[in-house]
Design a protein around this nucleic acid. Structure first.
Lengths: 336, 336
DNA sequence: CTGTTAGCGCGTTCAC
DNA sequence: GTGAACGCGCTAACAG
């Protein structure tokens, strides 16, 4: 912090008036002489006066800073969300400080502590894959710091939440496959305790059920670490008899691996097997054939979450609501 | 900011000692009785005391905050850099506040002003495609706020800089093609006033020259908006006689489009034409054939830039240096 | 070793 | 309308 900065004290001295008068003039208070006010403003302009944010924070007890926890910044989806957040924040004159949890609980906790110690006025968090304990978040709330969870939420924790309707997204993806005539639709899912997995799996199951298609447990394969286990999953799926005619994958990167494998085996997509992913990762537009996928509105999630949080900061005692944003099915060649 | 927070005042009152003694105990000062210190620490622990960062900032005149300007957060390269920055920052107990310029000068300037008004101790900036004026940055420097530029730098502005040796990266990519026996190597470049374009083009030219290959102007095609014009560029290139046997593209997304086009025309990669991209975007591992490309160490750029900036903040009058990080050629199937 | 005093830059009473 | 005085939570200089 530069020490040569002009302060209201300087202005007061130069104008031969008191500090508090300067303060009033600057803050556009009501009971102030027009002339003195203009004089102050003029001098402030000339001297390039800028209020000291830190000092203001100290006395007003508000930092205008919001902390954001992101599992992994390099994820396309989360960086979109972050973009939405920063856009809204700057609109309301808030700043965002963000930390990555890198999907570990330890980093998540230490990040939260750092942000809180920096006096953020609110917290936007998407929990790591390891997180399931709400007690750390309870502590924060007890300090009176509002929390809004986005995307990866903790069901046990009561706060406003912004999520994507993954159930509907998965449901529509599978419905699309059914409409295309698919009858043996496999699903590559993730760990059973991850909400992402559960929601998408349920959407898959719901669509099959609503269209009177039997549910074959052999067609549901767990890829524990998503794309890292997708190859094994697709191999397993392709051994099942009678043969599948579609594979709905938990995310795009898994789907890309599936596409590669099928191609290597001479299995034609979409003619023999249709494939659908989830996320609308940029990659899905580039693979061959291009990948049908479920678009999640990351930017909108970020915008909405930040909007809600700022609301909660400004009017305390906001009701906890859960907002569910809708996905969009992006149909490309892998399911045509 | 919560008002119910425990302060050193509370601790002092409860222990019947003075505020400054508490402060000393907490800060682990030398001249303090072991017993009183332990008593303070114990009570602080019990009451869950946490120092008020804002108050500390005000008196110590340091906010421990660093501002980062990123052209576009969703770019894989920049999000990597950001990750590197946050890692180093947290190691040194600094926080990062970041803003996107979205590649516009207006947003860049307003972001900088915001960050400065928030009393960041230093600035890490990668300029937008529109920026060429150094005067805004001069103003910041005059306030005594150190600036380090990374990746997209302004040559006219004197400060420490961290860049990637794109010339060498391009040179090595083309050299690799030459070693593979290519003799008619085309290049899809970008706008002539963009440093990215210039550096990579020069690397291309240098490699041809050093290997005594003629430079054919017909083989150098400008794709003004990179991938958006890549299709036109490759079409043009494929019309040239004698036919090309390799295409070196300014970035991966352009290269992917080139691959698609060649495939659609029944031209085999790498047998008929070899293709190389730039960036090592995740997409390059997924396309078919997988794409040879030049990896830029984004994470390292971020780490180094943040390290230098923190150094400059801590010891004023640091010499301005330019660090040039090396790229790595990632050889995949498109050039095998 | 400890307490007193004096700020950091600003907002907010309260008299005048 | 304006100024003096105080406080936000903390550090630092100085006595003792």
């Amino acid at each position: 912090m530069r020490s040569d900065q002009v302060t209201i004290k300087d202005l007061a001295r130069l104008l031969n008036i008191s500090i508090s008068t300067v303060s009033r003039a600057l803050r556009n208070a009501s009971d102030i002489n027009r002339e003195t006010k203009e004089a102050v403003l003029k001098l402030a302009e000339e001297l390039n006066y800028e209020p000291n944010f830190i000092a203001q924070s100290l006395v007003k007890k508000q930092t205008k800073m919001i902390g954001v926890i992101v599992p992994a910044i390099h994820s396309n989806y989360f960086s979109q969300a972050l973009a939405g957040m920063t856009d809204v924040a700057s609109e309301f004159n808030y700043h965002v400080m963000f930390c990555q949890s890198n999907e570990t609980l330890a980093q998540e906790i230490s990040s939260i502590k750092k942000l809180v110690a920096s006096n953020v006025e609110g917290l936007l968090v998407s929990v790591s894959k390891e997180s399931s304990d709400i007690c750390e978040f309870e502590k924060i709330r007890q300090k009176g710091i509002p929390i809004v969870m986005y995307d990866r939420i903790l069901n046990g924790f009561s706060c406003s939440k912004v999520i994507v309707d993954e159930y509907e997204g998965a449901y529509n993806a599978v419905k699309h496959l059914i409409r295309k005539g698919c009858k043996r639709i496999a699903h590559i899912t993730g760990p059973t305790d991850l909400s992402v997995s559960v929601n998408r799996l349920n959407g898959y199951l719901g669509a099959l059920k609503d269209h009177n298609l039997p549910i074959d447990p052999d067609l549901i394969v767990i890829a524990k670490a998503f794309e890292e286990n997708a190859l094994m999953a697709v191999k397993k799926i392709m051994l099942v008899k009678p043969a599948v005619d579609a594979i709905f994958c938990i995310n795009d990167l898994s789907a890309v691996i599936v596409l590669k494998y099928l191609k290597s085996k001479g299995i034609k997509v979409p003619e023999d097997v249709r494939v659908v992913g989830f996320n609308d990762d940029p990659v899905s537009g580039y693979v061959e054939p291009s990948l049908t996928t479920v678009m999640q509105p990351g930017y909108e999630v970020g915008k909405l979450a930040m909007g809600i949080l700022i609301d909660e900061i400004q009017n305390k005692n906001f009701p906890c609501q859960t907002f569910r944003l809708r996905t969009k099915l992006v149909i490309r060649n892998s399911s045509k």
